[in-house]
Amino acid sequence: MTENNYNEIMKLLCDRLEGVSNSNVQITSETNIISQLSIDSIKLLNLIMEIEDTFDISIPINALTDVQTVRELADLVYKIKSAS
């Protein structure tokens, strides 16, 4: 995995989050997924399934307890993808 891959992950996450968010907040890497984007827990879990499929990885939902911002989610996906 390279920096390019990381940027790709980040871009994809921002696009998908924009799709499911109910708010008009401009999404950046520092956006808080739950509090700023008003995404409920089930929507987030469904989004995780989609991301798993896109990258062909398993993202345990318990790993999300450490995820608040888009950057933290991108880091998690990058870490799992790199290890796979």
Binding site: L45, I48, M49, E52, S58, P60, I61, N62, A63
Partner: peptide, 13 residues
Amino acid sequence: GCVLSGADIIRFK
């Protein structure tokens, strides 16, 4: 129960 267990939780549709 899954959260309490500390296991990795994966959902299917």
